[in-house]
Each structure stands twice: as structure tokens, then as C-alpha cells.
Design a protein around this nucleic acid. Structure first.
Length: 724
DNA sequence: CGAAAGGCTCTTTTT
DNA sequence: GAGCCTTTCG
């Protein structure tokens, strides 16, 4: 198989430029993933580079898996030896192996954001501050920002320029101590500690530099300084580094991704070869044109010319509904209409939104009309309470210093160890300078006289917990992961606890689901299985769970949608305040990022784009009226079709929509009337049902009447007659 | 100690 | 509207 055969000249150039640094600027749909895969294949097959000596960094695990699949086709076998994964996963692996050199316990656990917040609260308190005055989230963000610039607490304190930063610095200091005491690393530590490791241990660094003859980094526009530093370290010897990115798709500045990395790359590697991928293979001409208009409104950007040989395709449909329920309903009916016409499958459609909260109304509509969908995040599986509880048990088995997990489950299910006892326990641990678990063991020792302030009842409860854990730890050395998990669930009493609680059955199902995941680790040694499982469940991303084989509509945030493509894309919430989000109003830089986000959404589409907004929407409980997104006005009207689906200021548009909707006739089977039905009303005459929606024990129908306009009526009073 | 109820505050995006 | 925290009562 000729690896270069199916590539265009620019792609080919990118694949063949293998000596020295390469910067690939790749527009959406320009075959960037393909280029990376082919480049790896080229290295292996043509240049005879051992896969062991190649590292490819992707943004999500899903992207890594995709790469793996592609490579299987291209080079088969040997893919196993590649180093392929996210920055976080790769760093975790390195630290597990080499971290000892800088004092990292190889059994370290990884704290996700929830764990991080809980430890931060403690840090704030222990720094003598009030968590209500200093929002843990704000401090977390400060710490993340420090870590993404490689600043230690000391560095950060020295550079602090405000009272808040000083406070944050002090908390950061304490937080870091607590992390160390817990043998834990947070997400940002994984990156920062890896860089520190290589800084402090040139021997280790040179071993890795030696090994990795070739490095590839995808989504380079979304890396932070620490990540870039790591890449530079690894590429220090051979300088064979290939980065791929698109400044116009940079949407993670809030995670301290830094676009300057792209500029600095050209400075740090002046000999770098630059390759532009400008031909788009994904979208129709009209979609690409629409997208170009949107992104061109950004001032801080280097213009670039994307083009495509694809068909012109359809105009972008812009629709305004009255509420977010109708917005959702429109999406569902439109999907069904397209499916009914045999144009697409449901799985070809995606609905994208700015905030996770928006998925709610959509989900309700999909459920109501029985249209299958898959929600990419939701309450993310691994963040569910019952899942995190079980994971906490497992973590504590692996690493009994893990205080966040200990405090999480010591009284779950209830063992009579309450808040008071816990803070006393923490105090004692702190003053004795030992981990909480050690303090517990001491209290639990039978020889101990009653040790005030713990009553004998409390001491007994604590001893019970220690015994439970000791038993689990002992058995963990011989049990495979599934058996260990079962033992945890049984012996801790968690099963009865969860089944007896709210939504017990559902939560229990989730635990069984976790058990299935654990099954994948069954064949590893008990020790490795546990470690690998814990790492896996912490470093997953939401899109990782996206299953393409299911024919259902995808509901997904715009951020998650990056890197994906769909024939039909609906972007909902096209309103000022939602997209762009109101938090970005006073910062032009952030506003440009919002625009890029919109651009990312539109450029996911292959065939059709719908930009939908609601006139009125309930946000945080109360109802708000938003103006149409300013991004809509960046699109010239000749690229747009559609209009309002309710009786708004623009009833002309409503009439236009009426005839448009007449042709749509979606098949929604919930009420007797459905959108698209033709009816007759005694007063208003003939009309077409635009939407129906249950309200209390009635049905609210929105009907477009010829010559009269759009009316909202209650079914029971309207006295409608169905016309065939 | 623990369950229940009421009150508070935020809500962007996520490896 | 939800999740978190505090208060209150048994």
C-alpha cells in the first residue's frame, strides 16, 4: 500500500518532511488527522523508524483511539509500541515509572476537579481563611494558571501582584503540601511534575530524548506553556518535532492554552518547515463560505484562504423559535423530516450548544418524541456520586495516604463517624504529623486505652472501618479487579446502602456498569489492574464515550465537538448571552474565542447547518429575553434561509416559515395533532401546526394561519378541525 | 450522629 | 433549578 498515494500535494509535503521541526497549520476538514496518521505510517514503513521511538500526542483519548484504528489499517501490528495518548496520560505513565527521582510515590492517585476542590477547601481553612470569602473555584483557577506556567507556590507568591494572588499563593502552598501528604497529583501536576522531573534529572531526560526520535502533537493551538515546555524537552536532542494546529480553532484559553506557542514555535525552531493545509474535504462550499464570514470578523487573526471542491450544497437555515422547548422541538422535527425523506440517518445529526445546561430541553424533546439520541456529557458517568464512592474505596486500597478518598467514604455508608469526629481526626493527624489513615489505625489499636476526645463508641466505629480496609488491602494482592470490586461493594455494605437510597436501582445499575468497565482489566495482575483502572477512570474524557455505531442524534457541547464531523449540524442557543456567552462581553479577546467556538461548530458540518435561537429562554430558573447572536450578523443574508417560527416582530418571516414548514411535515407521534398537520379554525381559517407541547393537562399548539399569522392556542379551547 | 428542611449562591467551556 | 451548606430536630 502506497502511503502517499491518497494525499494531496500539501498533505504529502507534510508527511514527507521528516527531518527537523515542522509546523502544520491545518484548517478544518483539511485532513489533519489523516496527515498525522500517514506521517506515522510513513515513518514506520518507509523510514524504518521503530514505533517505539515515536510519540504522538492527541487531545482526547478518543482521538488517540481513532489514530490507532487508522494506523492499524496503514501499518497493522506494531502500533502497540507507539507512545500514543493525551499529554495527561503520557505524563502519568512517565511519572509512575520515574517519579521517584523527584520524590513522587509511584502509587500516587490522580485527583480530579472535585477532589481538588475538596482538598482546596481544607487548604483554605488551614491557611486560616474563610472558604466563603475566597471562592475555592477562583483559587483553583489561579493555581491551574500557575501550574500551566510552571510556577511553584514560591514562584507564584513572589510574582503576586494583588492581595487575591497573595492569598491564592498561600493556599497553593498549603494545598501542595496536602497533595504530597496524600500521595496525590492533580491534573496540572501531571504535566508540571513531568517537566520538573526532566529539569532536575538530566539523565532521565536524556533517556527519553534518546528514545523519542519523532514527536507529533495534535491540536497544538490548545496547549499551554507547560505542555509546550515538555515537548521542547523531549525534542531536545533530535528536534524532529511536528506540531499540527489551527489558531482559528483555539477554544481553550480558559484552560490557559496559549496561542503564543504557535508563534514561539517558529522562534524556537527557526528552521521549521511550514505547511499549510487549506483544502477542505468536509463541507459544502456554502458551509465553508458561511464559516469564513464568521471567523473573518475576528481582528486578531492571520487571514487564510480555505477552499473546497465540494458541491455548493444548501443554504444555512436560521430559525427563531419562541422558547427553548420549541427550539428543541424544532430540532427533533427537523431531524425526523430529514430522516423521513431518506436523506440522512439520525446518527448523522448533531446538536451543539454552548453550555451543558442547554442539553436539558433538548433531551426532554427527544425523549418525548421517542427519537433516539446520545448525550455526550450529561452528569458525567465517572462524576456520579456512587461511582466516585466506589472509586474512593479502590483508591484507598491502592494508596492509604489518600485523604480525600478516606474522608469521602469513611462514613459512607454511615458508620456513626460524624463531622465532629472527622475534624478531630484531622487535627490529631496533623499534630502528630501522620496521614489520617495512620491516625485511624492508632485509634483503632485494641491495646489503646480510650483515647479522648473519641468515645469508645466512636473508636469502635473507627476500628471497624480500619479492619474493613485492612481486609480489603490484604485481599487486593490476590484478587482480580472485578472480584475486588465485588468484595468492596459487599463488605462495605455499599450495596444495601445504595439500593435503600434515592434512585437506588438506577445508581446500582451504574455500579454494575462500572463493574463491566473493570472487567477490561481482569487479566492484569491485581496490582497493575487496580492502578491501570484507576488511571483510566480518572483520565477519560466525555467524548471518549461517544459510540458511533449507535444510530442516534448526538447532543454535544461545542467544545467537545472539536475534531468531530457530522453531515447535519444544529447549533442551538444562537443568542447574545449564550453564544457569545455573557461572561465574554467585556473582554474582546474572549469574545474572539466565542466566535472561534461558533466557527468550530459550523465547520463540523458536511452537508447542512442550522443556527437556531429562542426568543425567550429560562436561565437559572428565571426567564430571559436574549437578542440574536451577534455572530449571525456576520453572515451575509444571501447565505441564509429560514425565519421566525412564532409571532414575533418579524411576522413576514413567520409567513415565509409557514410555507417552508408546510413542506416539512415531520412525523411526531405524541398527540393527535402534530407539527405539519393541516387544520381549520373557526375564526382564523386554515393553518398548519408548527409545534405542540403538553402543558399541565392540556396541549399548547402553535399554528401558522394563512394570511393571519402565527397563533398559540390551547388544544381544548381552540376547537380545531383536522384537514387532510 | 443523622435525616430533613430551608436557605444560599451560582452557573462556560474540560484534560 | 440544582447543588451545597447550615440549621434544626429526633
Amino acid at each position: 500500500m502506497d502511503i502517499l498515494a491518497e494525499l494531496n500535494p500539501a498533505q504529502r509535503e507534510a508527511v514527507e518532511a521528516i527531518g527537523g521541526p515542522v509546523l502544520i497549520l491545518a484548517g478544518p476538514g483539511s485532513g489533519k488527522t489523516r496527515v498525522i496518521a500517514h506521517r506515522v505510517a510513513y515513518l514506520v514503513k518507509v523510514c524504518r523508524v521503530s514505533p517505539r521511538r515515536i510519540m504522538a500526542v492527541t487531545f482526547t483519548n478518543k482521538a488517540a483511539r481513532e489514530m490507532e484504528t487508522r494506523l492499524h489499517r496503514l501499518v497493522s501490528g506494531s502500533v502497540r509500541d507507539l507512545t500514543l495518548g493525551t499529554f495527561h496520560a503520557i505524563c502519568a505513565r512517565i511519572l509512575r515509572r520515574e517519579g521517584k527521582a523527584i520524590g513522587i510515590d509511584p502509587r500516587f492517585v490522580i485527583y480530579d476537579e472535585e477532589d481538588q476542590l475538596s482538598l482546596l477547601k481544607r487548604s483554605i481553612q488551614e491557611a486560616g481563611l474563610d472558604p466563603k470569602q475566597y471562592a475555592p473555584r477562583a483559587i483553583r483557577s489561579a493555581i491551574t494558571s500557575a501550574k500551566s506556567r510552571l510556577l511553584t507556590p514560591q514562584d507564584y507568591l513572589e510574582s503576586s501582584r494583588s492581595y487575591f494572588e497573595e492569598v491564592a499563593g498561600r493556599v497553593y502552598e498549603r494545598y501542595q503540601q496536602l497533595l504530597t501528604a496524600s500521595s496525590a497529583l492533580d491534573f496540572d501536576d501531571l504535566l508540571m511534575k513531568a517537566v520538573q522531573l526532566f529539569k532536575q534529572s538530566p539523565e532521565i531526560l536524556s533517556r527519553y530524548q534518546e528514545r523519542y526520535l519523532h514527536l507529533l502533537v495534535d491540536e497544538f493551538q490548545d496547549t499551554n506553556l507547560t505542555q509546550y515546555e515538555l515537548v521542547k524537552q523531549l525534542a531536545g536532542k533530535y528536534r524532529n518535532i511536528c506540531v499540527v494546529g489551527d489558531p482559528d480553532q483555539s477554544i481553550y484559553s480558559w484552560r490557559f492554552a496559549d496561542l503564543r506557542n504557535i508563534l514561539n514555535f517558529e522562534k524556537d525552531y527557526p528552521e521549521a518547515k511550514l505547511v499549510l493545509l487549506e483544502q477542505n474535504y468536509r463541507s459544502t462550499k456554502l458551509i465553508l463560505e458561511t464559516a469564513s464570514y464568521i471567523i473573518s470578523a475576528n481582528q486578531q487573526r492571520k487571514p487564510k484562504e480555505l477552499w473546497t471542491d465540494n458541491e455548493p450544497g444548501e443554504l444555512t437555515t436560521v430559525v427563531e423559535t419562541y422558547t427553548e422547548q420549541e427550539e428543541a422541538q424544532f430540532v427533533v422535527s427537523e431531524v425526523e423530516r430529514l430522516v423521513g425523506r431518506g436523506e440522512v440517518n439520525r446518527g448523522d445529526c448533531a446538536v451543539m450548544y454552548r453550555t451543558n445546561a442547554q442539553s436539558r430541553a433538548l433531551e426532554e424533546a427527544f425523549v418525548r418524541y421517542g427519537v433516539p439520541y446520545k448525550l455526550v456529557a450529561g452528569t458525567r458517568f465517572y462524576e456520579r456520586r456512587e461511582i466516585k464512592d466506589i472509586i474512593a474505596y479502590l483508591r484507598l486500597i491502592q494508596n492509604s495516604y489518600d485523604s480525600v478518598s478516606l474522608l469521602r467514604i469513611i462514613n459512607v455508608p454511615q458508620r456513626g463517624i460524624g463531622q465532629r469526629s472527622l475534624s478531630q481526626l484531622s487535627n490529631r493527624a496533623r499534630s502528630a504529623g501522620v496521614p489520617e489513615y495512620r491516625a485511624l489505625q492508632l485509634i483503632a489499636e485494641p491495646t489503646d486505652k480510650p483515647s479522648p476526645p473519641f468515645s469508645s463508641r466512636i473508636s469502635r466505629a473507627m476500628a471497624g472501618f480500619v479492619n474493613l480496609m485492612e481486609g480489603l488491602i490484604a485481599r487486593s494482592r490476590e484478587l482480580n479487579l472485578v472480584d475486588l470490586l465485588d468484595l468492596v461493594i459487599e463488605s462495605s455494605g455499599y450495596k444495601e446502602y445504595i439500593l435503600g437510597g434515592l434512585d437506588g436501582e438506577e445508581r446500582w445499575e451504574n455500579i454494575l456498569e462500572l463493574r463491566t468497565v473493570a472487567g477490561q482489566y481482569r487479566d492484569l495482575t491485581p496490582r497493575d489492574g487496580l492502578a491501570a483502572f484507576l488511571e483510566g477512570v480518572t483520565l477519560v474524557s466525555d467524548v471518549d464515550g461517544l459510540d458511533e455505531s449507535v444510530d442516534a442524534v448526538t447532543l454535544i457541547t461545542l467544545h467537545q465537538a472539536k475534531g468531530l464531523e457530522f453531515p447535519v449540524v444544529f447549533i442551538v442557543g444562537m443568542e447574545d448571552g449564550i453564544l457569545p456567552h455573557f461572561k465574554s462581553f467585556d473582554d474582546p479577546g474572549q469574545m474572539e474565542e466565542e466566535r472561534r467556538l461558533c466557527y468550530v461548530g459550523v465547520t463540523r458540518a458536511k452537508q447542512r447547518v442550522y443556527l437556531i435561537r429562542a426568543f425567550r429562554r429560562s436561565l437559572m430558573g428565571s426567564s430571559t429575553v436574549n437578542r440574536p447572536s451577534r455572530f449571525l450578523s456576520d453572515i451575509p443574508s444571501h447565505l441564509i434561509t429560514g425565519g421566525a417560527l412564532w409571532e414575533g416582530e418579524d411576522s413576514l418571516a413567520a409567513t415565509a416559515m409557514y410555507s417552508w414548514n408546510r413542506a416539512s411535515a415531520p412525523s411526531l407521534a405524541v398527540t393527535e395533532l402534530k407539527a405539519g398537520d393541516h387544520i381549520r379554525h373557526a375564526e382564523f381559517g386554515d393553518g398548519v401546526v408548527v409545534s405542540c407541547q403538553p402543558v399541565k393537562d392540556d396541549e399548547e399548539v402553535v399554528i401558522a394561519f394563512a394570511g393571519v399569522g402565527v397563533k398559540r392556542l390551547l388544544l381544548s379551547y381552540a376547537n380545531l378541525e383536522k384537514v387532510e
